[in-house]
Nucleic acid binder design. Structure first.
Lengths: 119, 119
DNA sequence: TTGATATATCTATATATGTAGATATATTGA
DNA sequence: TCAATATATCTACATATATAGATATATCAA
């Protein structure tokens, strides 16, 4: 039976193994990858996706988002905080109000593209 | 003090509110959004991101991925299953081996683009 | 300064997730 | 049929997360 092409002691690596090692060294380091996966985790919630899509049109204040999504204020605030900390949105304070907008307007399009590729 | 522009009883909605409602009705339904957020959740793990990047070059069998990432076989199998169920990768059986590849080669590029927009 | 509004933070709880060891299944060669 | 390899599934446990009520903070108007 063909065995897994892992390199044997003393023998040179196969082309395949060399290529894999090349890819691994070209990747962001573990700390960065951890940060990237955490940012992507911010997208793994339906409420947060809704918020991003709402903001794809124009900036909104928190109370408008609360009204639109019909969820407790603490819950919306929690999700906004996650989106803000991961860099997807930014807030602009105006009196008591805080207006949130997408950090980059391309964000929602990229998310949609990503979903489409696997649908 | 300016109060939140939520529609009052009997009064017509503001332009802003109408636009929000328009966006909300244009969104995928809740079941679909739940599915989308679950797919994105598959990207929220550093090990799974590494697997996707490894597969961006060419298909690999499970044992090669185990060797490259140096993690327990059960763990890699678990992550591959998540990536497969969410549609990011597909498996091709050949004897005892299963070769996995990206469902769409654009996937890793789109992920990178998404990360770049918020960095 | 007082009261109301907008938002954030704290807290508890239920649920989901990653990890890794153990076991099961499938395939192949002898 | 038997042994070895490749992979999947099961299991338990520790950790992370969403939720929503309660409380805190900040801003403004009167």
């Amino acid at each position: 039976m063909k065995t897994c092409p892992i390199p044997e002691e003393g023998k040179p690596d196969s082309e395949q193994i060399l290529r894999m090692k090349e890819i691994l060294t070209s990747l962001p380091n573990d700390k960065k990858l951890e940060s990237h996966s955490n940012k992507l985790k911010a997208l793994s919630d339906a409420t947060r996706l809704k918020i991003l899509y709402l903001l794809s049109d124009k900036e909104l204040c928190v109370c408008e988002i609360i009204y639109a999504l019909n969820k407790p204020q603490s819950s919306i605030s929690h999700h906004l905080n996650i989106l803000k900390n991961s860099g997807f949105i930014t807030g602009r304070k105006e009196g008591v109000w805080i207006h949130y907008r997408l950090t980059d307007p391309k964000i929602t399009d990229l998310i949609s593209e990503l979903i489409i590729t696997i649908e």
